[in-house]
Simulated scan of single mutants.
Amino acid sequence: MSMKQARWLIGSFIVLALLSIVWSHRPGTLQLETPVGGALLPVSVPTDCSLKAPGCDLSLGELGSVTVQAPARIVPLHKFVLTVTPSAELAKNLGAVSVDFQMIGMDMGVNNYPLQRAADGAYSQTIILPVCTTTRTDWVALLMLHTPRGAYLAKIPFSVDPR
């Protein structure tokens, strides 16, 4: 066996090993990419909650509430800004805020975005979602809000607009 063939064989084994690792996870479940310390507290999302304009109000109990809002039109491969605006009482206790976009049953890659806090206390980030090759448009935004009491997780379903 020549050195060139040996390199090709080793390279093939490495690629196959990496592919088996990627394919072994279960994309049919919603997973958090960010490890959470402390309690993970679910946030009740109203059935009429719309991530797209006009937005959605989410209650975190006695801590306060947040308004989550994106533009009225979200198109894959086009930038949009997601904004999370905490109420005055929650703004004092809110730490890191991030959002992870996932599609149930599909592996759409890593779409996790930390939101940046602005001077007015709102958190925002420019986001670009990938195109689904099967033309599905249903997504779930996993919004993570870190507080001293634990991390709050809201699962907000939404749809992107066709191109």
Rank of each mutant, 00 (worst) to 15 (best):
A122N: 14
D120S: 14
P71R: 14
L63N: 07
F101S: 02
V66T: 09
G109W: 02
D107E: 06
A91G: 04
H78G: 06
I104V: 13
L90D: 07
Q102I: 03
I74H: 06
A122V: 13
A118R: 13
R117M: 08
N93E: 06
T83V: 10
A118S: 15
V84W: 00
S65E: 13
P76R: 05
F101A: 05
M103F: 04
L82Y: 01
I74G: 08
S98T: 10
M103H: 01
T83F: 00
S65M: 10
S65L: 07
V75G: 04
V68H: 00
N111I: 00
V81C: 03
G105I: 01
A122S: 15
Q69T: 12
A118D: 14
S65T: 14
S98N: 08
Q69H: 07
S65C: 05
N111V: 02
A70C: 05
D107I: 00
S87F: 09
F80C: 05
M108W: 12
L94M: 04
L77M: 12
G61E: 10
N111H: 09
L63Q: 05
K79V: 15
I74F: 06
R73H: 13
L77T: 15
L94H: 02
K92F: 09
D100L: 07
Y113N: 03
A96I: 02
L77E: 09
Q102E: 14
L94G: 01
E89M: 05
F101D: 01
N93W: 02
L115F: 03
D100Q: 11
Q102M: 12
A122D: 15
P71Q: 06
V110W: 07
Q69L: 11
A88F: 13
P86Y: 02
M108Q: 10
V84R: 00
V68T: 02
L115H: 04
L60E: 09
V75S: 10
G95K: 05
Y113M: 09
L94N: 03
L115K: 01
V84M: 01
A72K: 11
P76C: 12
N111R: 07
V66H: 06
K92C: 02
A119S: 13
